[in-house]
């Protein structure tokens, strides 16, 4: 029987508590595994620049005829260059932020502004 939701787009909101337990490659694998299931993820944290580069690397290793990559955008809620923010990070805290990420086959466009992300997504009828 055909799944009535198969042509819909699934958004998944992920708490930072889940991501806190995952570091390095585990975190990238967790993200990419979910994206390959055709989900758009909204994560309650911003990725660091190093994590963004790592994510692009891992995405490139995953590219196939069926998976053409990702669209990603990060909002850093607070500047992470201030003394207060550095201190929060040093103590293991979070300075906020948000990441939207999904398969490039679904996300037609991401428009980023310093404090806002707009996403246009479309699923082709199967």
């Amino acid at each position: 029987m055909k799944n009535p939701l198969m042509n819909n787009i699934e958004l998944e909101f992920i708490s930072s508590d889940i991501l806190d337990d995952k570091k390095g490659e585990d975190k990238m694998k967790y993200i990419l595994d979910r994206i390959r299931e055709n989900k758009i993820l909204v994560m309650e944290e911003s990725l660091s620049s190093t994590e963004e580069a790592k994510l692009i690397e891992e995405t490139m290793r995953s590219i196939s005829e069926k998976f053409s990559g990702i669209e990603v955008s990060t909002l850093r809620e607070k500047s992470d260059s201030g003394i207060r923010e550095k201190l929060i990070k040093l103590l293991g805290g979070r300075t906020g932020g948000l990441t939207v990420i999904g398969p490039s086959k679904l996300i037609k466009q991401i428009k980023k502004e310093p404090k806002r992300i707009s996403v246009w997504a479309e699923r082709k009828m199967e």
Binding site: S49, T50, E52, A53, E71
Partner: peptide, 17 residues
């Protein structure tokens, strides 16, 4: 083109780091 893309931000962020 719009320069405020994640690729540009990621490149610059990594160089700054």
């Amino acid at each position: 083109r719009d320069p405020y893309t994640q690729v540009n931000i990621t490149i610059i962020g990594n160089l700054e780091a």
